[in-house]
Design a protein around this nucleic acid. Structure first.
Length: 918
DNA sequence: AATCCGACATAAC
DNA sequence: GTTATGTCGGATT
């Protein structure tokens, strides 16, 4: 269960009449406990309570008390030996009237009326195993509001199906945005009178809900009518209490969907929440799921955490503003200039979703401006930062509506915080009519027209600006457009995940410009749009993107062309897992890249340290692999120009598992027909080579096909392969159904003597790549690369530290795991010309590694290469191998990986330069 | 004909 | 239910 589902379950529980016997179990159910767990507790078999309550080990101890004795019950729970013994996290006592609970570790307590306990649901979230407790607890309101709005949304669509059609979706979304605004406004005195909106609905609409839509519509009409125009507008007197709001929010149709009784009660229920607690940054990203059919299942889970957003905004420009603030000290003139600079900064998120990057940026800038105003002795001064400087593009209609609303709310909240409620109210209404969030496809829109950099003759605003006479500086500022910062988290869609429309977007951008654009991630469109935009002003960009655009295949496609546009990588945040509110948080691995056309010196590489702290490395420049240095991006090649043996991918069965046998399957077949033995070979892919589990395969060709057909078990399997291949969508696979007894793609003769095997994917935690040797009779699976009958010194290279570093840098990755590639990693691997002596030495090294492994038989590669548990003799053999190999490169060991990469890229560049010359 | 990828997939602990 | 670590098929070149 996710946080939203829990909130719903708890709210439901609190609304039911209190059942003293069932309450503990219902409570546990609400937190997602399974029926079997509840059953065990009920039967007493797992209930450890010693005070007559319900105790779930490691979780909670609940006691339903006599009426009026909740204090005593909580104390009994607290003092209970069972509570301590069973490592209980929470104790809870209630009599159905009042409710008390305590978190044992923190000592935090909750005491409230029973009916109100859902307000504290986040207090207990640990019970559901939700790890990001802090984030949720801080945003409990947003989750509750989201879940309630979602229920209303679904209910309304049920009663008004036509509002869910493509034609009217926009109206529906707009309606929801209006509602949210009204809830916020009635709780923040923007509407005069307590709960004016909700109360008016409650009073003016019939209990049977029949005219709810008319009442709401009339209020909307009021909010779209200027006070001056109200005479003669025929507004009902109760609607006349509402102010003129508009700003686009209440213009257009004031149609309202019809409300069922349930929908009406949901609506009133939502109105009773305390909307002053809304976090526009968090709320927006949650609520966008309300209107999104696809996302509804994972409601509230697409939360972009504030720390992650700051990972983008801080290095992009906020750090610099704060530095300038610090440098300005109390100097009024410097502070004034900084304020003027801030007022001209535009923040542009071309994939803004519900606007959380914009909202956070706005709030941070307001905070800095506030400090300036305080230091200048102007506290409470009206802000110079126009909301119109925060622009966005968003594809989804509802998100675009919410983004705009979120910014409006953020502005109001900042005004309250820095200027006081009175001032904030005075200037809030009517809303500004300009729309700064464009709903559309960012890759098809002209960014310059959506966020025009005013004044193109922009000079760099240098530090010494602050030293020039005041009036001079002011003139300069007036003539300049100021800075634009592009930021956001645009969608990543891998080449195979893109649908037709995505491909068309990509084609429109890249066809005729980048040859293999089809292999690029969809997100690269944003990078190019930003790079082009950056030519028209003082612009810097930072996006969260999938890490794959800085790895392997995509690097030579994307980056040379970006560099040609004058782009440079100012900063980068290395791979980290994107996290959201989901309980099991698989997510995706991302990087952050900061780009600009400027010549700013000093680049920064951020990463997350071992303790989870932010680490920064200052370097001269950053290359597309996100390592320091000006290295080329390299392209795949078919064969090694350095004289390495040919490395090929293993064989692909494309058999639906029918040609593959476990040991027991093999034994079974062989026991039924002995001659099947001749058709079966050991089968080794990456998993088998690393973990040592044996597998086998049917290896049949024309010469023994007749034999194969005569064995019923084998015959049946061949028939299954035929069917499986015929049912494939791929034409080539259909064709290979003609020979179903063979692997689909065969890369080895089956008559080899010795095979060097190397898994395609392997853990990044090992110190060396898990290369191994298999006997010639083995069939290699496509999940591994193979060198057939190659000299053993090849293995010495693969097993070296320097090779691992190269692979980790230039190849693709699976999340953060190594993903080996023959064309990008092996064939490009620069090796000095090896003498016969070198090859002999390296062969010896490889043999020593194999011997060391042999001594630990039957330990597998997985056992032997555990990060902290490598046997000493094996480690020593690898050390010797590295020593011998690195001496061949530079006559000594390398000092570190940076030095290794420098040498390798230098050799690679020389090699490619030589080729071009020839 | 062969490669490289996955807002991943899933077995193992 | 975290944690660890690699499937599998096919679009693309």
């Amino acid at each position: 269960m996710n946080a939203v589902e829990i909130e719903i379950a708890i709210s439901d529980l609190a609304m039911q009449s209190f059942d003293a016997l069932e309450f503990p179990y219902e409570f546990l159910r609400a937190f997602g406990n399974k029926e079997t767990t509840i059953k065990k507790l009920k039967s007493g078999s797992s209930n450890k309570s010693d005070v007559g309550g319900v105790l779930q080990r490691n979780n909670i101890h609940i006691l339903v008390s006599e009426p009026g004795k909740v204090d005593e019950s909580l104390k009994a729970l607290h003092d209970s030996p069972a509570t301590a013994k069973n490592k209980v996290k929470f104790i809870l006592a209630t009599d159905g009237d009042s409710f008390q609970a305590e978190a044992i570790d923190s000592g935090e307590t909750v005491a409230c009326d029973y009916a109100k306990f859902p307000d504290h649901f986040s207090f207990f979230l640990q019970l559901a195993g939700i790890s990001t407790v802090k984030q949720i607890r801080d945003n409990a309101f947003d989750i509750r509001a989201t879940s309630r709005l979602n229920r209303l949304y679904v209910e309304l669509l049920k009663d008004n199906p036509e509002w869910g059609t493509a034609d009217q979706r926009h109206e529906m979304n707009h309606f929801m945005a209006r509602l949210i605004f009204c809830f916020f406004a009635e709780d923040t005195d923007i509407f005069l009178g307590t709960d004016l909106f909700t109360a008016t609905i409650e009073q003016m609409s019939a209990r049977d809900s029949s005219n709810t839509h008319e009442v709401i519509s009339e209020m909307f009409r009021a909010m779209n009518t200027k006070l001056a125009d109200r005479d003669g507008s025929g507004l009902r007197s109760w609607a006349n209490n509402f102010p003129y709001v508009n700003g686009g929010l209440f213009s257009g149709s004031t149609d309202v969907p019809r409300f069922s009784k349930i929908a009406r009660s949901y609506l009133l229920h939502i109105g009773n929440l305390d909307w002053t607690q809304i976090n526009p940054d968090i709320f927006g990203s949650m609520i966008q799921a309300v209107a999104d059919d696809e996302e509804r299942g994972e409601l509230g889970m697409h939360y972009t955490s504030v720390p992650n957003i700051l990972k983008v905004l801080n290095p992009l420009f906020l750090d610099d503003l704060r530095k300038k603030l610090e440098e300005a000290g109390d100097n009024p003139r410097k502070l004034l200039n900084l304020r003027k600079r801030i007022a001209r900064i535009r923040v542009f998120d071309p994939a803004c979703g519900s606007g959380n990057f914009l909202v956070i940026a706005y709030k941070q800038m307001r905070e800095i401006e506030h400090t300036i105003n305080e230091r200048r002795g102007e506290p409470g001064r009206k802000s110079d930062i126009p909301l119109t400087n925060f622009r966005g593009i968003e594809l989804r209609d509802f998100s675009a509506e919410i983004a705009r609303l979120a910014l409006i709310i953020a502005e109001y909240q900042c005004d309250v915080l820095y200027r006081g409620q009175r001032e904030a109210l005075l200037e809030f209404l009517p809303l500004n009519a300009e729309n700064w969030i464009t709903c559309g496809n960012a890759l098809r829109l002209d960014w310059l027209s959506i966020c025009p950099p005013t004044g193109t003759g922009v000079k760099t605003i240098a530090d010494d600006l602050f030293e020039t006479p005041l009036d001079q500086a002011e003139i300069d500022f007036d003539n300049e457009g100021g800075e634009t910062y592009i930021c956001g988290n645009p969608p990543y869609i891998g080449t195979r995940e893109q649908d037709k429309q995505h491909k068309l977007d990509m084609k429109a951008m890249f066809d005729g410009r980048i040859n293999s654009w089809k292999a690029m991630d969809y997100v690269s469109g944003w990078l190019f749009k930003a790079a082009e935009y950056g030519r028209f002003g003082q612009v810097a960009t930072a996006f969260v993107t999938t890490n794959s655009i800085c790895q392997g295949q995509q690097v030579p496609l994307i980056w040379p062309e970006l560099f040609r546009l004058g782009i440079k990588i100012d900063f980068a945040h290395l791979s980290f897992k994107w996290s959201n509110l989901a309980a099991n948080n698989a997510g995706v691995t991302v990087i952050i890249i900061g780009l600009s056309n400027s010549n700013n010196q000093g680049c920064r590489i951020y990463s997350i340290g071992k303790q989870g702290e932010l680490e920064v490395k200052y370097v001269d420049c950053i290359n597309p692999y996100l390592i320091p240095g000006r290295y080329d991006s390299l392209t795949a090649v078919k064969a090694s120009p350095f004289g390495l043996s040919n490395m090929v991918k293993g064989n692909y069965p494309v058999d639906g598992g029918n040609l593959i046998l476990s040991r027991s399957e093999k034994d079974e077949i062989c026991s039924r027909s002995q001659c099947a033995d001749q058709l079966i070979r050991p089968f080794v892919g990456s998993n088998e080579s690393i973990s040592g589990t044996p597998r086998f395969c049917l290896w049949i060709d024309e010469s023994n096909y007749e034999l194969a057909k005569s064995i019923p078990d084998v015959r049946a399997r061949i028939e299954s392969v035929r069917e499986m291949r015929l049912s494939s969508k791929k034409v080539a696979t259909n064709k290979s159904a003609e020979r179903p007894y063979r692997f689909d793609e065969i890369r080895q003769s089956g008559n080899e003597n010795q095979i060097i095997v190397l898994p395609v994917h392997s853990s990044e935690n090992r110190e060396y790549l898990p290369v191994s040797i298999e006997s010639g009779s083995t069939i290699i699976y496509g999940s591994a690369f193979a060198l057939f009958d190659a000299p053993l010194w090849n293995m010495a290279l693969i097993a070296s530290r320097i090779h691992l570093v190269w692979i980790g840098t230039v190849c693709g990755k699976l999340e953060t795991r190594y993903r080996y590639s023959n064309t990008m990693g092996w064939n490009t691997f620069p090796v000095p010309k090896l003498t016969e002596k070198n090859k002999e030495d390296l062969t010896r090294c490889a043999e020593d590694i194999l011997l060391a492994r042999e001594r630990h038989f039957p330990a597998t590669i997985a056992d032997l290469y555990k990060p902290d548990a490598m046997p000493d003799d094996l480690r020593a053999a690898h050390e010797r191998n590295d020593e011998v190999l690195e001496r061949i490169y530079i006559g000594r060991r390398f000092r570190n990986d940076t030095e290794r990469l420098e040498k390798l890229f230098e050799m690679y560049s020389k090699m490619t330069a030589g080729k071009k010359g020839a």
